[in-house]
Every structure is written in structure tokens, then in C-alpha cells.
Nucleic acid binder design. Structure first.
Lengths: 241, 241
DNA sequence: CGTAGTATTGAAACGGATCAATATCTGTGG
DNA sequence: CCACAGATATTGATCCGTTTCAATACTACG
């Protein structure tokens, strides 16, 4: 059950989704076939972008759809009040840039250096309409992202800040493919990003981290690397919704 | 721009989604073509279910996918703590029952009497894979539901209960196709459902309703019908995220 | 190596949750 | 059609935890 970021990102795009139907062994991921990847590769390009770069802006023309080959991005919307609501952190195999009425819905910004696969929206739409199986992968993918959004809402619903943060670490342990190996959970994003994602103040996130460390559930090697010390209690706290 | 529930629900299924690409006039809805509706009608059946009936249960085998022809349902998950997290209210033209690994993710329960269109999951999957355009509608639909889930998270993020409830009423004014005509907003669900959806206690919802009425923004004709009195201030409050 | 952005820690206050009592509604049977 | 009972909703008082404001510490990048 080991997850590892491929050291050499593939040239063709990848995608991972949970299938609608039950597979033989259980929660197996659905992956693009070599042929499908080749098809996508032909209409798109691979680009590398530096950390902190804004990849696309909400309400701008949705000319491209992106798939992440390597790295981590954050999706957010600027609220009228000036706050920013983070809707998702995306990693390897994730897609973003699906539009609504030809406009992007969120702003997407690189957290780390990222390698992306970029496809013109129109070309992708045409390809999807032609290849039912490929589109089915996308449908599964978006459905899965819908579940993620619902889980986030559930997480935000919790009253206790510590519990929310614990859930978040557990979430990242699954979502982020990087550095999960030795029980270390990578948290490449800033504390303020976590706060905006969890609907907490920056201070509460900080206090929650301190509290988790004090109670011996998690050890923070540094601000961006958490090591789960007591997995059992951690899981219990994360599940205590 | 009048919305009205058709008095005679159609025999073939309907679906409404926001297209990816910009249409001529702006935020126009995407609708199934007569041919597509006919195709769907051939593999599914129309059923009527009474209010309060549980239509499908989380973790049970996902044998069918449903589309709502008429009425209102709620989707929720039972949390370990015993609380229930409401993930969505669904109306006319909405779909539910998309599975993950062959199991339903949420429980869906009828709020009013409902008329549903029911399709075997397998048959639908096959049809979607064959008909790229039809599947594209579903993809658009699920993408749109993803936005809804994100909006809900944004709503839950608000600190003030009154603001959340105001947003909810504004949301229902758009989502619910019923009774929106004369500035009246139908709230067919119970106060406790609203509470579970907004992440508030039942009491807070009740207090918020009272507060909205006291400040002259909304008049509650009865518990299930809100009339927006001061649209401008209402919109302002709802937008003050 | 310094500086600006980022994070931690402390003290006080606000707002929603909770507990508790009462009121209203809905649907059932007389 | 009305009365009754159980469920649903409202209103009040108190408590707890997060937000906010403020000061200090840390870290990363030039």
C-alpha cells in the first residue's frame, strides 16, 4: 500500500479516479490506459511553473484544462469581504480548470514548483465526446472531487479546531502522494492556507498544532512536515465527527 | 425568467446543467435533447414515492441512478457521533445515486412526495460510454454539483448564523423551482434539516429566522414559505461573505 | 546577514452550543 | 370536524471555545 511520487514525471498525463462500480479487490483506482494518455498527450503540452505562480484566475476565460503531473496547487475564491475561501488542495493525478459558462470558477495558484499537463478546453471537450471511456474517467474523477468537497464541508462542520486540524492531517496523509512513506505527512501549504481551508483563524490552526504536539499525537519535524506519533488516537480523533 | 414546476411531470427524464463553454446569451442551462430523453426513458422507469421515504441508503449496493422529475429530497450521511451531515437538497432536474466503488455514498430521503426517474447503474454507464454527448451532460451536471458543494462550504464558513440562513434562503430561491414566482421562497424541509445543512444548531436556525423577520428582511408566511421583503438588504447580507 | 512575511503565544470578548421550558404544528382517530 | 398526542419549533439563560487584538518569535529569501 505504498504511495510514492514518481521520481521522473511521465510525459503523458495521468489521472486517478475512484470507479463507480465495484472492482475486484475493493477501492482500486482507475487509471488512464496508455492509448488514452497518448491521445491526451497529442492535444496538450507539458509545462513547468514555479511556486507561488497564479496559474489561472476566477472569472477569466477558461481556455485550458490542467492535470497535475507533479507538485501541489491551491484553489480558492476571493470573497467580497476580502477573505479567501480555499476550496481544495490538489496533487498528482488531479485535474483543475473545468469551467462554468466558459469562465473559471476558482483561482488556482502553485504552492510548490509544479509540472502540469495543459489541454485546450475545446479540444478536450471534443475528445471526451468522441471517447466515451475516456470521458467516463473524467466523470468518475469529478464525482470523486464532489465527494472531497462534501468531506471538507463535514470537516468544517466540526466545532473543535483541534479535531479539524487532525482530520486535515489525516486527509493530507491520503491525498498528498509525497513523503507519506515514513509516517511523515507533508504539509507544503502555509498555515494561513490551512486556516482558510478549514475555516479557522490562523491562530487557531497554530494553537491546534501546538495542542496536538503537546498531547503526543503528532510531532512536527518542522512547519511543513508532521510525523504521526500515536496513529490510533489520531485516527480516533479524526473520526470523532 | 419565470421558473415554474410543470404541472404534469414529463414521462421522460430531464436534466439541467450549466455548460462548460459560454453560450450565446450567458448563463443558459443545458437540457437533454428529445432523442436523449427517449434513450434514457427506454432503460429506466418512472416511480412515485411518498414523503419521508428513504430512497437509498449509504454503503448499500448502488444498483440505480435517479433523476428527479418532481419534488424534493435530502442527501445526508450519518456521522459516527450520531449527528447527520446534510450534503444537499435536490430538486427537479437533479440527479443522485452516483456511486463510488459500487456503493452509495449518501443516504437519500424524500422530503415531499417525489416523482423519480430510475435507471440501472450498469445500463446508464454503458449508455454514457456509447453516447459522448449525453455523458457530457452528466459531466457538466456533476461539475455543477461540485460547485454547489463548494458554495455550501463557503456558506458554512461564515461565522454569523443569520448570514448563513440568509444565504440559504437566497440559495433556495434559485435552486428550488417551486413557488419562486411571487417572491415567495419554498422551504419544504424541516428546520432541523436546515440546521444540519448549515452546520448550525436547530435553535440557531430558529433564532436566525426570528432575527430576519424582526429586521424586516423576510416575512415568514409559515414555516415553509418565506417571503423576501427587502430584496436589496437581503442580497447584501447574503453576499457579505 | 538583515528584513519582510509567516507563525506562535497571550488576554479578552463575542457568538453559537447546550440545557431547559414552552409553544406550535401535523396527522391520526374519534 | 374536532381533539389529542407526538413531533417540531420557538424562546430564554448560561457556558465554552473560537475570534480578535496585540506583542513577540521565527524563517526564508534576497
Amino acid at each position: 500500500m505504498e504511495k510514492r511520487a514518481s521520481s521522473v514525471p511521465p510525459v503523458t498525463p495521468t489521472l486517478r479516479a475512484i470507479p463507480f462500480t465495484a472492482s475486484g479487490t475493493g477501492a482500486e483506482a482507475l487509471l488512464l490506459s496508455p492509448a488514452q494518455r497518448e491521445q491526451l498527450a497529442q492535444i496538450g503540452v507539458r509545462i513547468r511553473l514555479p511556486a507561488r505562480m497564479v496559474i489561472l484566475r476566477e472569472d477569466s476565460a477558461a481556455d485550458w484544462v490542467f492535470a497535475i503531473s507533479d507538485g501541489c496547487v491551491k484553489c480558492y475564491r476571493e470573497l467580497p469581504s476580502g477573505k479567501r475561501a480555499l476550496t481544495a488542495f490538489l496533487f498528482n493525478h488531479d485535474i483543475f480548470g473545468l469551467a462554468e459558462n466558459g469562465r473559471y470558477v476558482n483561482t488556482v495558484q502553485a504552492i510548490s514548483n509544479v509540472t502540469l499537463f495543459r489541454v485546450p478546453t475545446m479540444d478536450l471537450a471534443n475528445l471526451l465526446k468522441q471517447d466515451g471511456n475516456l470521458q467516463f474517467q473524467f466523470l468518475s474523477k469529478v464525482t470523486h472531487e464532489l465527494r472531497s468537497a462534501q468531506r471538507r464541508a463535514t470537516m468544517i462542520n466540526r466545532r473543535d479546531a483541534v479535531g479539524r486540524f487532525a482530520m486535515f492531517i489525516a486527509l493530507m496523509a491520503n491525498a498528498s502522494p509525497v513523503l507519506t512513506d515514513g509516517q511523515g505527512v507533508a504539509l507544503p501549504m502555509a498555515r494561513s492556507d490551512i486556516a482558510d481551508y478549514l475555516g479557522l483563524s490562523l491562530e487557531s490552526v497554530s494553537r491546534s498544532a501546538a495542542e496536538l504536539e503537546r498531547s503526543g499525537l503528532v510531532k512536527f519535524e518542522n512547519r511543513h512536515l508532521a510525523r504521526i506519533v500515536d496513529g490510533a488516537r489520531m485516527a480516533k480523533l479524526a473520526a470523532a465527527v
